[in-house]
Design a protein around this nucleic acid. Structure first.
Length: 346
DNA sequence: TACCCGTGGAT
DNA sequence: TATCCAAGGGT
């Protein structure tokens, strides 16, 4: 898998799979399904996509995706729902290029949920490497355990059952149901929110927190047909990731630039409350990161002295370590000795 | 709701 | 160099 930077738009664009990873095979039609937009003149065909869900944005976005989508491993036809779930955990707040190698290692080592569930949670934390937010590793291990216990080892297709898994929120539940099972869900991540904010709402950036209005908008724009809705979801996200980017959108390559409300308004600058900066240096998060890195890279238990060496302030150091223990990321083994969690998921 | 939770590349 | 930003979730 070649790692591409966002600025390196693929010209080859291996067409994204139209097939669900499991379930009913698609009919083998390689072209874009005719979006509901073109069904508008039809006389209310029973059972078909309804005209009232059509939108002028559908056809250009779906067409753009067919030509420009990245060939990512979790989008391939042979990617299982488990593979999609793993990718979604890793992609939370983490760039694609950093996920790719770790994703490959995980799927090779733990090809099914039961394989991961059979290992101590500390192994998941160690294999997480430097992806960041290591609690995700713990939750993914817990999710794998829940999949084994509640669903016989198969990642569920039901949105509510997905949502009930540890570490799975509204976005991830919708994403897995849509990407892995080709269901019709509004998949509202930071990319989609930005595209809709610009193209439809006419503002540069979406609100800091997801609003009910955004959810209604995403739902309204969803094509009526399941397969088309699933393709739309991934297409809008990809458009946000590659073209309608946060800092410097590539409007000259955008398939809906002519319809974009933000552009039509003259691309006004954001005027809402400033987005909170993420200071990092000197925070507990940095200390936690350093402490856990020591544990991750060690092959066995670690002495207190090795942890003490990574941060000068003893008060902050102790607070960070306590936090890691409270989160289940670190396990006190004996007096002054620590290790990654070996017990059952806590 | 607002805040906490890692890491590192791009600008 | 400093800031921004990345397929969020939990509390």
């Amino acid at each position: 898998m070649t790692v591409r930077s966002p600025t390196d738009l693929p010209a080859t664009g291996v067409p994204p799979t139209d097939l669900p990873a499991t379930g009913v095979p698609a009919t083998g039609v390689p072209a874009i399904d005719v979006p509901a937009a073109d069904a508008g003149t039809g006389a209310g065909t029973a059972g078909g996509p309804t005209a009232d869900t059509a939108d002028p944005l559908h056809e250009p976005v779906l067409g753009w995706y067919l030509a420009h989508a990245r060939d990512l491993p979790w989008r391939r036809q042979d990617a299982s729902p488990w593979a999609v779930l793993v990718s979604e955990f890793m992609l939370q707040q983490t760039p694609v290029t950093r996920v790719l190698p770790v994703y490959a290692e995980w799927l090779a080592r733990w090809p099914v949920p039961a394989a991961l569930a059979a290992e101590p949670p500390g192994e998941a934390v160690r294999a997480w490497g430097r992806l960041g937010y290591p609690r995700r590793a713990l939750r993914l291990h817990a999710a794998a355990t829940a999949v084994v216990e509640r669903h016989g080892g198969d990642v569920p297709s039901d949105h509510a059952e997905l949502l009930a898994l540890p570490g799975v929120g509204e976005y991830t539940a919708a994403a897995v149901a849509s990407f892995a099972f080709r269901q019709r869900h509004a998949v509202l991540d930071t990319n989609v929110r930005r595209v809709l904010a610009r193209a439809v709402s006419g503002v540069q950036y979406p609100p800091n927190a997801t609003t009910a209005a955004e959810r209604r908008l995403a739902q309204r724009l969803l094509p009526g047909d399941e397969a088309t809705a699933a393709r739309w979801a991934v297409a809008v996200m990809e458009l946000g990731a590659l073209v309608c980017t946060a800092r410097a959108p590539r409007c000259d390559r955008c398939p809906i630039a002519r319809r974009c409300a933000w552009r039509l308004a003259g691309s006004p600058a954001h005027d809402g409350p400033p987005r909170r900066g993420q200071t990092y240096a000197g925070t507990d998060r940095q200390v936690r990161g350093r402490l856990l890195a020591v544990l991750r890279e060690a092959t066995g238990p670690v002495a207190q002295s090795a942890l003490d060496a990574v941060w000068d302030d003893p008060v902050q150091r102790a607070r960070a370590l306590d936090g890691l223990v409270a989160d289940g990321l670190v396990e006190p083994l004996a007096a002054g000795v620590y290790r990654l969690p070996q017990g059952p998921p806590g």
